[in-house]
Amino acid sequence: MISPSDMYGMSFLKRRAMLKLLAKGTRLDGREFHEYRPVKINIGVVEKASGSAEVSIGNTVVIAGVKWDIGEPFPDTPDEGVLVTMAEFLPTSASFIEPGPPDEHAIELARVTDRGIRHAPLIDLKKLCLIPGKKVLTVFVDIYSENYDGNLFDAASRAAVASILTCKIPSFKVGEDENIEVDEEQLKPMPIVKVPISVTLVNIGDYILVDPTFEEEQVSDVRLTFTFTEDDKICAIQKGGPGGISEDLLMEAVDIAFKVSKEQRKLLMGAVKNAQKENDT
């Protein structure tokens, strides 16, 4: 795929026009600088997945699904389950995206989403251990972009987190000869610790824009993703983009992201609660 920074040449004029517009205090789509586009979270969209969610932020659409398997633990964490996060840009996402194995952009997307989930931590991986050192539950979180209009990081994070929060896994029993019995009748939720909420912003000139569109990403200097947990802590940060940012703007960005993460958390938890209620009745 073509990255926003690689299209810099074409975007020189766009950047100038964008800066003029921002100087007047408006964004191309009329939003406030620190305002998200409408976020829609649709939970349980794929019955065959243990958990799933489709999330749209404006025109950006991402779908995530959770599957599980019984596997071996990593040697350095013999008593913990395994979390595997994968992301792929579907060729439906935009005209310039070609089918193929995940490239550096998809790998970064997966790894940043994974970092938020892993360091929150969202899942209590110790509770996914079946036989220490031998058998544990492996949780696969697979993320696909369906339509790309900027800020895939937050869409991917919301979709992955919503899928895991509403995921149902069977009960497991360890038999005498270390056979694992799977009880698909007795489904239970994923063991949860803390919920990560990512907020992505871009820096264009002296301006900081929350939830950038593709056009905004294209002309931006710096992209920043901050992930917060509900106890007001930062659990992950990632910088991207071809430019640098002053320390003052960086600290301003953290504070903005922190503030915005509160409303985003409400939105996500509201959607999760509704889905759980529907499921119960």
Partner: peptide, 19 residues
Amino acid sequence: RKLVTLIQMDGSLTLDEFK
């Protein structure tokens, strides 16, 4: 130039600790 060109974090820090 006093510009930050990369920032990455994992773990758990409050905003004050981060600074």
